[in-house]
Design a protein around this nucleic acid. Structure first.
Lengths: 229, 229
DNA sequence: TTTACTTAGTGTAAAAATTACACAAACAAA
DNA sequence: TTTGTTTGTGTAATTTTTACACTAAGTAAA
């Protein structure tokens, strides 16, 4: 027990809510715990913050260690600081959330996790700790955010059709949107590039493919802009 | 050194950005530190989270101990987890922010603070730690929030005129607003009650006093509403 | 008591944004 | 060539937002 302090300290952890999307459903990434407490139960990927890494870095590291996901943009969600979150001892956790292209990453459970899998956000198994509460907050935040920031693109493949994008928005918002108004709005932002390429194989008219113009978005971001859906 | 752990743990603290408003200016509450590090320097009120209190409770307690402020609604702002925030050792802090009626509270510096004072938010002295960064983030958040939630009322006396309210909004947003449009919008929310009472003493037409209808607001809040200015 | 000064309080027209809504175009399969 | 399916497009009505100027009510000073 080499690390001693004058006063008792809570342990500090990070947890990550990672959202993915697979053409029909919004999913969250969970791991199956390999250690007590809640061994073999599903939970958000996360773990202890090391003394020599920032909290942000801890989130990145734990996400990688437990799921194999790398190069993910994590945004801080909220800090959960109640007393009995963990049955063993006092633990405060800083929660993060991220959006990823499911096709762009291969899952690989390693440290502290037996398994890592995507679950539909509204059909998750019973979760360890207060992780259901964290997940719920992340869903709420995602819904709020999607209406005023162009974030949906992170969840889609690089090339996508406007119909796919609309379905994603409808899934996140749990609402239906008018096709023509949606297109008007989303194209009006000027952040989508039509590629002149078209989908193939469907027994119907092919749809044009678009991609998100990240550079343009970053320029706009800097000049303090915001947009609404 | 009675508290020992297998791994080194960051210390966990809370810091509070408390905003007030005194008819012309937006102010933040600072304390003069009575202990090292940064002894005698101005800082945000805050301190260590105890092992037997929630993080939220720690914020309330520290705010009270260092400034005498009680019954303040604190909302979590952000968690600052970089490595060298504190010169002594690794400290992670959960920042909170609050809005208070300056007239409704008496300042009283006690534990760990030599003094507690209001400073105009854009004219603060050099602050300890990374507290300037925290304050800046709180200002940004306040600006963002005021446009879609009726929060300004917390900063004004119970009875106020529409002109006072408009000035407050203009101060927070660092912008000027059209008088007629502002009134239309703010009254259209249906959250202000005209009191039939009027200001006295000015060498000009008296202004009607209003108050914020908190109950109505809470009802609306529950049914998941939002409004924009 | 009249005049000057200051702030309060009010409505409307123009512009912009949002909403609602229906059909032809392009392909594959039968 | 007919059927079935999804893509892609414009306009009119409504709502929201913006811009803008004068009268009302009081005090102070002449």
């Amino acid at each position: 027990m080499p690390f001693c302090y004058d006063y008792a300290r809570p342990a500090l952890t990070v947890d990550c809510v990672v959202f993915g999307y697979d053409e029909t459903e919004l999913k969250a990434l969970l791991i199956k715990r390999d250690l007590p407490p809640f061994k073999r139960m599903w939970a958000l990927p996360g773990g202890f913050v090391r003394i020599d890494e920032t909290v942000d870095d801890a989130a990145k590291r734990e996400l990688f260690e437990e799921t194999g996901l790398e190069n993910v943009y994590l945004e801080q969600l909220y800090t959960f600081g109640d007393l009995h979150r963990d049955p063993r001892e006092r633990v405060v956790t800083v929660a993060y959330f991220a959006l990823v292209k499911m096709s762009g990453h291969r899952l690989r459970a390693t440290t502290d996790a037996q398994d890592a899998q995507w679950f539909p956000v509204r059909q998750t198994p019973k979760l360890a700790f207060d992780h259901q509460e964290i997940l719920d907050l992340a869903i709420t935040r995602l819904k709020g955010k999607v209406t005023y920031q162009p974030i949906g693109f992170e969840l889609l493949p690089t090339k996508f059709t406007l119909t796919e994008l609309q379905k994603l928005y409808e899934t996140i918002l749990e609402a239906t949107l008018d096709k023509r108004n949606f297109r008007k709005k989303i194209l009006g932002m000027g952040l989508l590039e039509p590629l002149g390429e078209y989908t193939e194989g469907g027994a119907h008219r092919p749809a044009e493919l678009y991609r998100f113009n990240k550079k343009k978005y970053e320029k706009l971001s800097k000049s303090g802009f915001f947009f609404e859906l």
